[in-house]
Design a protein around this nucleic acid. Structure first.
Length: 499
RNA sequence: CGGGAUGUGGCUCAGCUUGGUAGAGCGCUGCGUUCGGGACGCAGAGGUCGAAGGUUCGAAUCCUUUCAUCCCGACCA
């Protein structure tokens, strides 16, 4: 950090900018545990709002919450070959259940307390859940089973980054069981459309592209994987959510069968889907600026902050009083407000302080404005300030919150569109991704093989983010020839460098 | 798991080459003056120099070992 004021600018060093922002906006901190972060109250407040909105959507689409164990017997993992391969490299394993004094000092695992079967700290819960579902499902009348859980998971990442990739993270994972392939398909798409896309666009104000993952990028153990992909300000792609159609893979691995209406035994069809605290990283990368975090109003733990001015008691009484009048009215309307009553800090300090933390609206309440019967209302996203009559303030602020939410989405969409292009020659494709940083979304033709995908990734660092469910432009759905091999291609797919 | 760097008050770092009373700025506490875009003065508190060995009369400084973190690459939500 070059100074204790402000943060590195995005243009100077995007990666530094992100790291400093997370710390200085009070969202999270490094912990004493390697690869694990502390989510601070401001960051956790954001997560709570995300949870609430998503949970409401899950409930509205017929799901219920439950909780499954943190520990999973190793043997469960061994039952689904593709799945094991996907996660084996990054699992934390519990081997003992007791400590004893170490002769060399300190403590050591008691060799006599070795577990007969090692336990894996869940990297995801498909296996323990399907082992449980086996006992819950006998008849078609038990289906569909629509369960979600809010939990922490552990993936032993070698290289971590606050929110984007940590060894432990918080998420939700939905696990559903269905009688038919079509029903499971509908479920996977319902989550994608009615929950994840809606959440990203309406709450996070982040436009996303819905698509299917290529064979190489799909979830280990899935039949196919749907995803939503967002664009960061440094022109990379970031996956904001995934919804998997697991087919009968896990049902077969765990022997989950049901009797259908014709009294025949059948394997159930499954889905699983999740979003994580990574969404906070996505939010930062999509909207924030060189002054710090910029939060969309719907997810900001504090939506409006009041800064009353004046030092002498009489002035303070006036400015705090006026703040209270407005904030009380806002509270009644369900707006989350805060009045900064700290006496030692100057108003200027407070402006910067709350801007760093991304609070959408600041209300400056000073004696000169009060003399004129007004206050100043400042927007975090644009920096615009306006003078508003006291009587109109609460109403104006509510309107502005909606406006900010909308404007943030519109700007992000415009940015994404401006950085999405179609490329038809390998020369141009290679050149586009030649630099160090991201290059936006590139729609290009691909022959559909994993081999080609891998060659392209090796040569350019760009990967297939998804095959869009609906073409961004009608012509994207027309057949063409692969950018690398010249073989036939069904449609354009999205290439980008990814987080 | 490879390559690089760094560990010294809460934070950012100086001191180490050339061993000899542990420093600065920010933050923190108190008092006073300030308050419309990161205020100032004065007085304070706070550190087994990442850990363990070793060399030495004497180690933050030299040697050995170790641990941790960060950055850059391969894997991942």
């Amino acid at each position: 950090m070059s100074s204790n004021l402000g943060i590195t600018s995005r243009s100077e060093n995007y990666s530094e900018w992100y790291n400093e922002l997370v710390l200085k906006a009070d969202l999270a901190d490094y912990s004493a545990v390697r690869g694990c972060m502390v989510i601070k109250p401001h960051g956790y407040g954001l997560w709570e709002l995300m949870q609430r909105a998503l949970d409401d959507m899950f409930k509205a689409t017929g799901h219920v919450n439950a909780y499954f164990p943190l520990f999973i017997p190793k043997s469960f993992f061994e039952k689904e070959a593709e799945h094991v391969e996907g996660f084996a490299k990054e699992c934390a394993v519990v081997t003992h259940h007791r400590l004893k004094p170490n002769p060399a000092g300190g403590l050591m695992p008691d060799p006599e307390a070795k577990l007969s079967e090692e336990l894996i700290v869940r990297p995801t819960s498909e296996t323990i859940i399907w082992n449980t579902y086996k006992d819950w499902i006998q008849s078609y009348r038990d289906l569909p089973l629509l369960i979600n859980q809010w939990a922490n998971v552990v993936r032993w990442e070698l290289r971590t980054r606050l929110f984007l990739r940590t060894a432990e993270f918080l998420w939700q994972e939905g696990h559903t069981a269905h009688a038919t392939f079509e029903e499971a398909e509908t479920e996977a798409l319902t989550i994608l459309n009615e929950c994840y896309t809606k959440f990203a666009e309406e709450y996070m104000a982040v436009p996303v592209i819905k698509g299917v993952k290529s064979e190489g990028e799909k979830f280990a153990g899935a039949d196919h994987t749907y995803c939503i992909e967002a664009m960061t300000q440094d022109l990379r792609a970031i996956q904001a959510g995934t919804s998997h159609h697991l087919g009968q893979n896990f049902a077969k691995a765990f022997g989950v069968q049901f009797v259908n209406k014709e009294n025949q035994l059948e394997y159930v069809y499954a889905t699983s889907w999740g979003v994580s605290t990574r969404l906070i990283g996505t939010l930062i990368m999509a909207h924030s600026d060189d002054k710090g975090f910029v939060s969309p109003p719907k997810l900001s733990p504090i939506q409006v902050v009041f800064v009353p001015m004046g030092r002498d008691e009489a002035t303070r009484e006036r400015t705090v009083g006026a703040s209270t009048t407005i904030s009380d009215e806002l509270k009644k309307a369900g707006i989350r407000v805060k009045t900064d009553l700290r006496e030692k800090e100057s108003p200027g300090f407070k402006y910067n302080y709350w801007e760093m933390r991304g609070i959408p609206i600041r209300v400056e309440v000073g004696p000169r404005d009060l003399d004129a019967g007004t206050v100043i209302v400042a927007r975090r996203d644009t920096g615009d300030k306006e003078t508003v009559a006291l009587a109109d303030a609460a109403g104006r602020i509510q309107t502005l919150l909606d406006q900010i939410q909308k404007d943030m989405f519109d700007r992000a969409l415009e940015f994404r569109n401006a950085n999405t292009k179609r490329v038809d020659t390998w020369e141009e494709f290679e050149q586009t991704f030649a630099g160090e940083g991201g290059a936006g979304f590139v729609l290009a033709h691909w022959d559909g093989t994993t081999e080609t995908e891998n060659v392209i990734a090796e040569m350019t660092k760009a990967t297939i983010r998804c095959i869009p469910l609906t073409p961004l432009e009608p012509s994207d759905a027309e057949p063409g020839t692969c950018i690398l091999t010249g073989k036939p291609s069904k449609c354009r797919v999205i290439f980008a460098k990814a987080y």
